[in-house]
C-alpha cells in the first residue's frame, strides 16, 4: 500500500469520525497514523492535517459500505448453500469490485467487510434468495438515487453499479 498524504489523511479522519467502527478499526487507524508519522520525514506531509473540522462524509460513502455488506451477504449465502455457490459467487465478486472502485474514487483505502447485519445464515435456500433479493432491490434503488445527483465524473461508475444491481436481481429470478 502506498502511503501518500491524501490516503493517510483521508483514512484517519474517516476512521475516527465514523462512530460505528469497531475497536479493531480504531486500532488499525492508530497503526496507520503511526505509519503516517513515520513516513512524514520522507514525504514531507503532515498526517494529522492542518484543518480542525473534518470534511463532511462523502455522499457515495453509503454506496461503498453497502457494496461491502452485499458482498459479505452473498459470500455467506454461497458458503451456507453449496448448490447456490455457482450463481452467487460471481455476484459477490461484482459487489467487491464495486467497493474497490468506489474506494479508489473516494480516495480511501478499502474497509474490511464487517459482519452481515442480521447475521445468522438461514438453512433454507429459498429464504436465503429472498433475503438477497430484498437487499439487492434496496441497493439498486439507492444507487439509482445516488446516480441522479452524482457529479459528472462519478455518474458513469454509479450508473454501472445501479445497472449491475438490477442485473443481479434478474440473475436471482
Amino acid at each position: 500500500m502506498v502511503l501518500t498524504c491524501a490516503v493517510v489523511r483521508g483514512t484517519t479522519t474517516q476512521r475516527i469520525d465514523v462512530p460505528r467502527h469497531s475497536r479493531r478499526h480504531l486500532l488499525r487507524a492508530g497503526g496507520l497514523l503511526a505509519l503516517g508519522a513515520a513516513a512524514t520525514p520522507l514525504t514531507g506531509c503532515d498526517p494529522f492535517g492542518r484543518d480542525e473540522t473534518p470534511p463532511p462524509p462523502d455522499p457515495l460513502r453509503p454506496l461503498l459500505d453497502e457494496s461491502l455488506a452485499l458482498a459479505t451477504a452473498y459470500r455467506d449465502a454461497a458458503a451456507a448453500h453449496a448448490d447456490l455457490a455457482a450463481r452467487l459467487t460471481p455476484i459477490a465478486d461484482a459487489h467487491q469490485a464495486h467497493a474497490t472502485e468506489l474506494a479508489r474514487m473516494l480516495g480511501v483505502d478499502l474497509p474490511s467487510a464487517g459482519p452481515t447485519p442480521g447475521g445468522a445464515a438461514t438453512t433454507d435456500p429459498d429464504a436465503a434468495l429472498t433475503d438477497l433479493r430484498q437487499r439487492e432491490r434496496g441497493g439498486r434503488d439507492a444507487a439509482i438515487t445516488a446516480c441522479a445527483s452524482a457529479p459528472a465524473e462519478r455518474a458513469a461508475l454509479v450508473g454501472s453499479i445501479a445497472a449491475a444491481r438490477a442485473t443481479h436481481l434478474e440473475a436471482l429470478k
Partner: peptide, 11 residues
C-alpha cells in the same frame, strides 16, 4: 452463458 452478469455493465 455463465455468469449471467458482468461487474460493470456498459463499461
Amino acid at each position: 452463458i455463465s455468469p449471467l452478469t458482468v461487474p460493470f455493465p456498459g463499461r
